[in-house]
Computed example of a mutant assay.
Amino acid sequence: MKKLGIIAFALFIQTAFAQTNRFVYQVTMKPDASNKSDIKTENAYLDISAEKSVFYSENRIKRDSILQKAFQSGGGRGSVDRNQMEGLRSIINYSIEKDKKNQKTFFKDRIGRDNYSYEEDRPINWKISSETMKIGEYKVQKAETDFGGRKWTAWFTTDLPYQDGPYKFGGLPGLIVKVEDDKGEYSFDLMKNYKIADFPTLNQFGNTIKVKRADFVKQQKKFMDDPMSFMTQGGGGQFRIAATRGGGNQNPAEMRKRMEERIKDEAKKNSNPIELQ
């Protein structure tokens, strides 16, 4: 009986540590360089296990869930409520995975019709201050860094046993509760946390291309300069498909023009990215 009790306790401990912890951050952004009064706010998840962590938009997982149900029911994308999907649009289209064992950070984002993935090649060097304060229930300590062309101030707590944080941030002796840039254009604030059974599956539609970070930045700039070239690769099939929906009575040229205007407008609204260099 004693041996069984020890085994049961060991299994309990193993199960407890195998669980994934979800930290919910409120992300506040000013993504439009021409309109800094346009403030966007949405939630993002930082899911942490012993092996890895993943940071991504709450709206993304909600959209993925709706699409998955639509495909499972046999309806496909055409059966999805467009207004519902529009309400779940996100500025945080990227996801970030940190490999704890190998101390590597992987960034994934979409450019045009393809998904890109790169390994972050810049270390984050923190300057830890002795300054402390309370944020909510946590005692936090100040740290500062320069990263991606911005100066960042973070507040981390050792009350939680994780050396992690939102976005690409981590490497401090505790969990980052708050981090913001000195211009007040981007901030991440911890709102709550709870346990989940496992990491959700993030759907990746289209190809995934692994590149160096510098090559991703080049592709991103090309997209900002000429977004339509990325949408028409492969002979403009995307427009032919779109034009044939609804009985095929839509003009492909008009479809192209509307899409071009929409993409350029989206690019303008995201002209103040979190990383400036």
Score class of each variant (00 low, 15 high):
residue 1 M to S: 15
residue 3 K to A: 13
residue 3 K to L: 14
residue 6 I to K: 15
residue 6 I to Q: 15
residue 8 A to L: 15
residue 9 F to D: 08
residue 9 F to Q: 12
residue 12 F to Q: 03
residue 13 I to R: 03
residue 16 A to R: 07
residue 17 F to W: 11
residue 21 N to D: 13
residue 21 N to L: 01
residue 22 R to W: 06
residue 26 Q to A: 13
residue 29 M to I: 12
residue 33 A to V: 10
residue 35 N to C: 10
residue 38 D to T: 05
residue 39 I to N: 11
residue 42 E to A: 06
residue 46 L to V: 05
residue 48 I to H: 05
residue 50 A to V: 12
residue 52 K to P: 04
residue 54 V to R: 02
residue 55 F to D: 00
residue 57 S to Q: 08
residue 63 R to V: 12
residue 64 D to K: 07
residue 64 D to G: 12
residue 66 I to T: 13
residue 67 L to V: 13
residue 67 L to I: 13
residue 72 Q to A: 15
residue 76 G to S: 11
residue 80 V to Q: 07
residue 81 D to V: 11
residue 82 R to Y: 12
residue 85 M to T: 04
residue 90 S to E: 07
residue 95 S to F: 15
residue 97 E to D: 13
residue 98 K to S: 10
residue 100 K to F: 13
residue 104 K to F: 10
residue 106 F to E: 04
residue 107 F to G: 01
residue 108 K to C: 04
residue 108 K to R: 15
residue 110 R to G: 04
residue 111 I to T: 09
residue 114 D to W: 01
residue 117 S to Y: 00
residue 119 E to C: 02
residue 122 R to N: 09
residue 123 P to C: 06
residue 127 K to P: 00
residue 128 I to Y: 04
residue 129 S to A: 13
residue 130 S to I: 06
residue 132 T to Y: 04
residue 133 M to F: 12
residue 134 K to M: 14
residue 137 E to C: 03
residue 140 V to Y: 01
residue 141 Q to V: 05
residue 144 E to I: 08
residue 145 T to C: 11
residue 145 T to L: 01
residue 147 F to D: 02
residue 147 F to P: 00
residue 153 T to H: 08
residue 155 W to H: 09
residue 159 D to W: 10
residue 160 L to G: 06
residue 161 P to N: 09
residue 162 Y to W: 15
residue 162 Y to R: 01
residue 164 D to Y: 05
residue 165 G to R: 01
residue 166 P to E: 09
residue 168 K to T: 07
residue 169 F to R: 02
residue 169 F to Q: 02
residue 170 G to R: 03
residue 171 G to H: 06
residue 172 L to E: 03
residue 176 I to T: 05
residue 180 E to P: 02
residue 181 D to C: 05
residue 183 K to D: 08
residue 183 K to T: 10
residue 186 Y to Q: 05
residue 186 Y to E: 06
residue 189 D to H: 05
residue 191 M to G: 02
residue 195 K to S: 15
residue 199 F to I: 09
residue 206 G to E: 08
residue 206 G to S: 07
residue 207 N to M: 09
residue 207 N to Q: 14
residue 210 K to L: 07
residue 210 K to E: 15
residue 211 V to Y: 02
residue 211 V to H: 02
residue 214 A to C: 01
residue 215 D to C: 07
residue 216 F to I: 03
residue 216 F to N: 03
residue 218 K to S: 13
residue 219 Q to E: 14
residue 220 Q to I: 00
residue 225 D to H: 03
residue 227 P to A: 12
residue 232 T to Q: 06
residue 233 Q to M: 13
residue 235 G to Q: 07
residue 236 G to C: 07
residue 241 I to C: 00
residue 242 A to P: 03
residue 243 A to Q: 03
residue 246 G to K: 09
residue 247 G to T: 05
residue 248 G to M: 09
residue 248 G to D: 06
residue 252 P to M: 03
residue 253 A to R: 07
residue 256 R to M: 14
residue 257 K to E: 14
residue 261 E to D: 13
residue 262 R to G: 11
residue 265 D to K: 14
residue 265 D to E: 14
residue 267 A to W: 02
residue 268 K to Q: 13
residue 268 K to S: 12
residue 269 K to W: 04
residue 270 N to G: 04
residue 272 N to C: 11
residue 274 I to T: 08
residue 276 L to P: 06
residue 277 Q to N: 15
